[in-house]
């Protein structure tokens, strides 16, 4: 490791604030774009499954008698 202590790694000779905030923002945005599609897909599938359930309970149930 280049830095001697945690303190030195955090301050980076005065540049710590810039470096760490840049890395923080970067990681935050990467997390967002990596998690968004999964959430979108799960939400959609849950919604579609719910619709199917409702349709089964609804008028289509009559077909079961045929």
């Amino acid at each position: 490791m280049y830095f001697d202590s945690v303190q030195a790694a955090l301050s980076m000779d005065g540049h710590g604030g810039f470096v760490w905030s840049a890395y923080g923002i970067c990681l935050l945005v990467l997390m967002l774009i990596l998690l968004a599609p999964r959430r979108r897909q799960q939400k959609f599938l849950r919604q579609l499954a719910g619709e199917q359930k409702r349709r089964q309970r609804g008028p289509t149930v009559l077909k079961e008698g045929n």
Binding site: G14, H15, F18, V19, A22
Partner: peptide
């Protein structure tokens, strides 16, 4: 100095 580390992102 250390500010260049931002290059990695």
């Amino acid at each position: 100095g250390n500010s260049y580390r931002i290059i990695y992102i």
